[in-house]
């Protein structure tokens, strides 16, 4: 049966602003299925974004939604979550927003292990400004500001999140639509900072500069490079060359930040009484 997306969409907002073939819409649908599966309540859910193409997502969905300044989504979300720990807080955004200008907030939210779910749509590029390279643009690739090939090495978002202390880190691609909602569901059910990286396609500003002739070709690439983390163990380093691992890459249980702060409150109140 068709999933009833309308129940979560604000009326009259479609079609969305994303370009033909942009995977952000696929991710948005996966997000809504995951929210539905977890039974999140609209009034009790906040979806926060920064600025960029992916950051336009909150405008379409019927929750408490906050479209903030470039890079600052996680810090705004931290304020919401700390002021109202009972709310379910999600952050959505792109690679430039989250990992370049927002990189400091990103690593520190991971370190605190604050209970929120961050869906990072990594399309390797700054799409909204017309296709400049991001910290996730592969070395050598062409963008409007790397006309001779990108000299920068990339950030591996998942490794960065794990290294910074996030307790749930997963990765999939826009091609793997059912895995998107499965991983976001697992992230929402996880207590602590959950990062789900979705490798995405930007046909308009990345594809056309990097010899992808169509959306379909970009989607096929996402299909081809993905290797489930469970099967990667049986593959040789040569076979894994140029591949990315998908699935739940890391999960552990550590004290969650709002819980830790509740203990601070308890200690302060005990001290005040004595």
């Amino acid at each position: 049966m068709a999933f009833d997306y309308e129940q979560y969409l604000r009326p009259g907002k479609l079609p969305h602003i994303w370009c033909p073939g942009c995977g952000h819409g696929i991710v948005m649908k996966g997000l809504l299925r995951a929210i539905d599966r977890c039974g999140l309540q609209k009034n009790n859910t906040a979806i926060v974004s920064g600025t960029g193409c992916a950051s336009r997502l909150p405008g379409y969905v019927d929750f408490n939604t906050l479209h903030t300044a470039h890079g600052r989504a996680v810090a705004f979300a931290t304020g919401i979550k700390m002021a109202r720990p009972e709310m379910d807080v999600l952050v959505v955004g792109g690679d430039g927003d989250g990992i370049a200008i927002g990189g400091n907030h990103f690593i520190h939210a991971c370190r605190r292990n604050i209970d929120m779910t961050y869906v990072l749509m990594n399309n390797y590029i700054y799409g909204m400004t017309g296709g400049q390279f991001s910290p996730c643009t592969p070395t050598g690739d062409r963008t409007s500001t790397t006309p001779y090939g990108n000299p920068d090495p990339i950030f591996d978002v998942a490794k960065l999140a794990i290294g910074a202390g996030a307790t749930f880190v997963a990765r999939t691609t826009a091609f793997h639509a059912t895995q998107i909602d499965k991983l976001i569901t697992a992230g929402l059910r996880h207590k602590g900072m959950a990062v789900i990286e979705v490798l995405d396609d930007c046909p308009t500003t990345f594809g056309r500069r990097n010899k992808f002739r169509s959306v379909v070709e970009m989607m096929k690439r996402l299909k081809d490079i993905a290797v489930p983390v469970q099967t990667a163990g049986q593959m040789s380093p040569e076979q894994l060359q140029g591949k990315i691992l998908t699935g739940i890459l890391h999960q552990e249980h550590k004290p969650e930040y709002c819980d830790q702060y509740q203990q601070v409150i308890a200690r302060a109140q005990t001290a005040a009484k004595s």
Partner: peptide
Amino acid sequence: PKVGGTFIQMEDEIGAMASILGAALTGAKA
């Protein structure tokens, strides 16, 4: 914390400003 409020030391000045705006939207005086 004595009055059940929240103090958070953020990672930078911009984060501090962002956090109070997020909190203010939940109704807090920030």
